[in-house]
Design a binder for these strands. Sequence first.
DNA 1: ATCTTTTGCGTGCACGTGCACATTTACACT
DNA 2: AGTGTAAATGTGCACGTGCACGCAAAAGAT
Lengths: 357, 357
Amino acid sequence: MAKTDKINNSTTQATIFDVARLCNVSRGTVDRVIHNRGRVSQETVEKVKRAIEILGYSPNLNASILASKKTYTFACLIPEFEHGEYWEKIHEGFIAGANSLYNYNIEVDFHFYDQTSPESYLTCCNKILDSKPHGVIMNTVFREETIHFASQLDEVGIPFAFVDDKFDGLNYTVYYGMDPYKSGRLGAFLLTNHFNPDQLLLVRLIRDTNHKADPNAKRRQGFLDYINLKFPQCKIHTVFINPADHQQIYVTLKDFFQEHPEVKHLIMINSRIFLIDEYLRENPDTKRIVVGFDDIEPNLASLRSGHIEFLVTRHISSQSQLALSTFAECVIRGVKPQKRDNYLHMDILHRLNMDDY
Amino acid sequence: MAKTDKINNSTTQATIFDVARLCNVSRGTVDRVIHNRGRVSQETVEKVKRAIEILGYSPNLNASILASKKTYTFACLIPEFEHGEYWEKIHEGFIAGANSLYNYNIEVDFHFYDQTSPESYLTCCNKILDSKPHGVIMNTVFREETIHFASQLDEVGIPFAFVDDKFDGLNYTVYYGMDPYKSGRLGAFLLTNHFNPDQLLLVRLIRDTNHKADPNAKRRQGFLDYINLKFPQCKIHTVFINPADHQQIYVTLKDFFQEHPEVKHLIMINSRIFLIDEYLRENPDTKRIVVGFDDIEPNLASLRSGHIEFLVTRHISSQSQLALSTFAECVIRGVKPQKRDNYLHMDILHRLNMDDY
DNA sequence: ATCTTTTGCGTGCACGTGCACATTTACACT
DNA sequence: AGTGTAAATGTGCACGTGCACGCAAAAGAT
C-alpha cells in the first residue's frame, strides 16, 4: 500500500559536446556527421556514429529549432469546397495540424483544384513542383494524374503523404484515413441491427456513375457483402439523386416510397446523407432507419434532429491533422513513421453520443 | 480553379528585446514583469505590459525551455491495480502524457493507494504535500478525504486536476472524463435497440453496496432513467456477484437464468463485464444482448469473442493523457485551460469497429 | 621545391530566454 | 552635503545547436 513510482525526463541528456569529447573531435565535426554534410573522413564518421550510439545522444529539439533559421514548406493538395462539405473538415484539420507544429518554422501552402477538372489538378501539381516544397500531402480524387504526380515527386526526391484514401504501391511516407471496406460493413450492420430487412434502399449520387474514380466503391462493396451474406433474400433498391437539384431529390424519394411503402431501411454510402433530410422532415409518417457516413455539419444536424439514426465516421479533421503533423515531424527530423498505414477508429455516432464529438 | 492559400508560422515574432526597446528599459526589467518577480516600479510594469500587448509578444518556448533549468514535478494519485484493470489504462495514459511533454523538464511521481484503505490514501496525500509538487492529478475514489486534500492543496497554492470523475465546487484547474449519466443512457439504448425488453438483468458487484463512494451511481441513474422512461413496464432484475469468486459468479448467473430463461438483455454498469464471460462462453444456448462499459483488455477480448454485443467507452488512457499534458502546460505556462470540464466523446464499440481502437 | 587545391577539422557567433549579480537611482536621516 | 539603504534597473553568462568561416595538413600541379 501507498507505493511510489517516478518518470523523469529531465535526466541530463548527452549533448553534442559529450559526443565530441568521447571522440576527441570538435562539435563541428560531430555536427557534420549528424547532418550528413560531408567533409569528414570515413574513419571519423564511424567513430562519431558509434559514440552517438553509446551515449544514446539525440539532438535537443529546443536548441535545434532555436538555432535553425530554416523554414520548412509543405504543400497540401485538396479540392475546393463549399461550406459544409467534406473537404472543409480536411482543410480545418490541416490548419490544426499546422498550429500544433508551432514549435517549428513552418509554412503550409494550400492548393485547391476543381474536382471536375483534371486540368486544374495538373496546374496545381506543376505549381507545387515549381515551388519545391519539403513535402506534399494529397488524396486520390484523380487516379492516373496522382500516380504520375507521385512519380514526379519521387524523381526530385520530395516525400509525400496520403489523406482520406491512398494508392497502394506508391512510395508515400504515411497515410491516415478510415478503412472504407470496413466502414461499409459497419454501416450495413447498423442499418439492419434494429430489425431485419426484406428490402432496403441505397441512395446514390448521379455523378457517382460517371465519376471515373468512384471514391466510394470500396465502401459500397463492404456494405453489399455484409447484406448479401447476412440477408441473402434482401432486395436492394437503388435510386439516384442529383446533389444540385433539391426538387429532383424530393420527387425521386417521393415516387420511390409511394411505390415501396414497405421499405424501412435507407442508407447512403457517400458523405451527403443530409441531402435527403428535407424529404424525411416533411414525411415523418413512417419511422425509418437511416444510416449515413461522415461527420460533416449538415449530417450532424440531421442526426440531431432525429431524421438519421446512425452516422459512421471518424473525426474527419483528425485524419488531416495527424497526417500533417506526423508527416512534418518525419520530414523535419528525417525519420520514418512508426506506422505507415494509419486507419482511424470508426466511430458510431447516434443522437445519444454526439454531444461531445 | 487552382487557387492557393498559405499558413506561415515562421513570421518573425517579437522578442523580449523588441519589448524592451519600445519601453526604453532593459531585457531584465521586461523579464521581471513577465514572471511577476517584482522589483519593478508600478509605472514601468504598466508600460511593459502595454508594449507586450501592442507587439503581441509571447515568449519563445524553445528558448525558454532551453534556458530554464527548472524541473517541474507532478504527482499522480491513483489506486494500485492488477494487470487488466481500469486503472492500468489510466496509468498508461499518464505515461503517454509525460512522454508527450518531452520538451519540458518534467518529473512525474506516481502515488499508489489501496482502494479499500482510506489510511493508505491519507498516507499518499501527506507524502505529496511533503514533496511540494507543482501540480497534482487525482480522482474521486474517496469523497471526504479528497475534498479535504483539495483544501490543503489550495492552502499551499498547489494546483490540481481531476481525471475520470470530479467533485464540483472544488478549485480544480481542469477535468477530463466521460459524462457518467449520459454513458448510462447510451448503454441502455444499445441494450434495448435491437429488440424491446419486457425484463432485463442488471449485474452488480457485491462491493458496490458497501462501498461508500459508489463510483457508478450516476451512470446507473442514467441507465435506469432511460429504461423507466422508454419501457415503463420493463422489469429490472438485479444480481450481485463477487469479483474475487469465479465460482459464485457462475452459480449466481446459472441460478438466475434457470429461473428466468426469458431474460435476454444483460448489462453491467461498472467496468467488469468480462467477469461474466466465462458463464456466457459455457452457456451459448441462448443468444443474449450484453452491454458493458470501458475498453479494458479483458472486455475487449469478450467483445472480440462475441459474448458481448456493445461496449460503451472512450479511450480510457486518453483521459489521463490529456489531463496530464493539458494540466502541465497550464501550470508551466501559467495560464488557464480553454475548457475546464472536458467530457470525452462516448465511443460505441462493437466487434465490427474495434480493430483500430 | 614551390605553389595551389582539396580535405578534414576547429572556432565563433547567433538564436531568445532565465537568472544571478552588478550597477544606478531615489530617498531618508544625520 | 554626506552617508547608508532599499528600490529599480542593467548586464553577463549559460542553455545546446546550426552554420559560416577559417586554418592546417595533405594531396596534387608546375
